[in-house]
Design a protein around this nucleic acid. Structure first.
Length: 531
DNA sequence: AAACGCACCAACCGCCGAACT
DNA sequence: TAGTTCGGCGGTTGGTGCGTT
């Protein structure tokens, strides 16, 4: 039986068009052959109809049989791809929703380019779709000189991965979307002479001897933000110079922090993949340096002394950032009352709902999510509506029941597993926020200046915000905490404040974020800018 | 109006692992 | 156990439409 005849049997009338066309059974010379040259190129509606019809009859799978049984001059792979990406039911067409985009960021930061796995967590989306989206986004961001991931997202994700994989550099470059080395080399020393008020180190308490404004970032070049792990440094109250003894080793791995003016010759040395903390002995006031392997999440917050203390956790970018961008990042945090110190206590007070962490609080979302919000608000609201609970971040953690992404929770659990590095990566940012038991009586009180920003990024529910704000306004004394810098601050200082201009009530970002969290950010941003 | 660049998307290609013989 | 087949995955390419110059 000729191939065309077989086709007629399986597909009936559908075949007539196909037979008349040049799709089936024609070789290069146009003559029909039993060994037809498989067609390439775009699929026609006729071919689609044939494939759909075939799958309806025979089900998915055994794709190589499609060509034999249906007469489609397409290879099995092509059939499978066409079915999976375009013809199968329940495919979701159209632009990605903000919810989906944020999930893609999170998943990409965790998984790398595991598009198929991501697609499994995004109902109706295909791996090809996600891949295209990401690649397009990468191009756009690279051209704009923007990081592919929010800082913390990279850090946390890679930090977790690094615990398992001995070569986190590979993970970084492979999974985190770093710039190619041709454009930005990845030096061992990736963070040097950070300038306070310019970027990633804005989490220093105002009442510490090392104020935010006393830090100097001497060198901020894109090349210095190579594909490396973030540098995390915890220090306690006291001059940084006290810790200069730590600078002796592995300088090639260490980055340097020059605490400016009065401490210019003194450095905090941190290494990527590791962290130092300086635990103060309450008895002799000596600082007891401790070394923590990053990923252990055993920063000094866990066993902090009761003495008055301030801690800095420096989380350096593991990806490229333009100087201008970095500069802008610092601006918002240049004041004594930094964004970071303000919002960090908030994190400590965040509800620890896994759902919240997953859907809203994921470090991987921070930063880019704001951009997404911005872009979304700029382009259209086609994917969002205020009362569209299933697709809105304004919903609370407990309100996500209708979300199409709910089912992802189960599969995402593997990434939350506290044993899993992924799980750690997701939760560590929160675990690291601890308030000193003594000292300020209100150590758990967040600063009102910026926590709404943080909350916005983190997706806190409105009533929580108001509670925080009320408490904050009742107690204005500075907090004593181990400050960790969430990437949300990047978002607030850079993505919001600079890239899109100072926050005003009219900015699309503030509006959109207010929309997302049901909170008016205007006043908070104004305060921050004025600080 | 034409040329150009860019974004987006669909599809292909090569590799790999699992299943099967 | 080795070879083959098949399906899946990720990287890449090519086509198309749109905006800009």
């Amino acid at each position: 039986m000729s191939q065309n005849a077989k086709v007629k049997v399986d597909n009936g009338g559908l075949l007539r068009d196909l037979i008349d066309s040049d799709l089936v059974g024609k070789g290069r010379g146009g003559e029909s052959t039993d060994e037809a040259v498989l067609k390439k190129g775009p699929w026609t509606s006729t071919e689609d109809a044939i494939l759909v019809d075939y799958v309806k009859k025979h089900g998915e799978g055994n794709w190589n049989a499609v060509q034999k049984n249906s007469g489609l001059s397409r290879c099995g792979k092509s059939c499978r791809l066409r079915w999976a990406n375009h013809l199968r039911p329940n495919l979701k067409k159209g632009a990605f929703s903000i919810e989906e985009e944020s999930l893609i960021f999170e998943l990409q930061a965790k998984m790398g380019n595991k598009w198929a796995r991501m697609a499994a967590l995004l109902p109706g989306r295909t791996d090809n779709e996600i891949k295209n989206y990401w690649n397009t986004r990468i191009k756009r961001r690279l051209r704009a000189g923007l990081p592919l991931h929010p800082v913390e997202g990279c850090m946390q994700a890679v930090a977790g991965e690094d615990q398992q994989n001995p070569s986190f550099h590979e993970i970084n470059t492979a999974n985190m979307g770093f710039l190619p080395s041709s454009g930005y080399h990845s030096p061992d020393v990736v963070f040097e002479g950070l300038n306070a008020g310019q970027g990633f180190l804005s989490c220093i308490s105002e009442h510490d001897e090392v104020s935010t404004g006393s830090l100097q970032m001497n060198c901020l070049e894109p090349t210095q933000f190579g594909s490396r792990m973030p540098c995390m440094i915890n220090y306690q109250r006291g001059s940084i110079s006290q810790y200069s003894s730590f600078s002796g080793k592995s300088e090639d791995l260490f980055s340097f922090l020059n605490p400016c003016e009065d401490d210019r010759d003194e450095k905090i040395i941190g290494s990527f993949g590791h962290s130092f903390s300086f635990d103060q002995d309450p008895a002799d006031k000596n600082l007891l340096p401790t070394f923590h392997v990053q990923g252990s999440h055993s920063f000094s917050n866990g066993n902090s002394s009761t003495s008055r203390r301030t801690a800095l956790k420096l989380e350096l970018p593991s990806f490229q950032a333009s100087e201008a961008e970095l500069n802008s990042m610092w601006i918002a945090s240049a004041s004594n009352q930094t964004l970071l110190e303000s919002v960090d206590p908030l994190i400590q007070s965040l509800p620890r709902s896994p759902k919240v962490e997953s859907e809203y609080l994921s470090p991987q979302n921070n930063g880019l999510l704001e951009v997404l919000v911005y872009e979304a608000t700029q382009s259209s609201t086609k994917n969002q509506s205020h009362d569209k609970g299933s697709n809105s971040f304004s919903q609370t953690a407990g309100d996500t029941g209708g979300s199409s992404l709910d089912f992802c929770e189960t599969q995402l659990d593997e990434y939350r597993d506290p044993i899993s590095p992924l799980g750690q990566s997701e939760t560590s940012i929160f675990n690291d926020y601890r308030v000193s038991a003594s000292g300020g009586s209100h150590g758990d009180q967040p600063h009102a200046d910026t926590f709404p920003v943080h909350s916005a990024v983190l997706g806190l529910k409105e009533d929580g915000l108001n509670q925080f704000e009320l408490r904050e306004r009742e107690q204005e004394t500075p907090t004593e905490s181990i400050y960790t810098w969430p990437d949300a601050l990047l978002a607030s200082s850079d993505w919001f404040g600079q890239r899109y201009g100072p926050f005003t009530g009219e900015t699309p970002i503030s509006d959109s974020m207010a929309f997302l969290v049901g909170y008016d950010l205007t006043g908070d941003y104004k305060r921050t800018a004025e600080a």
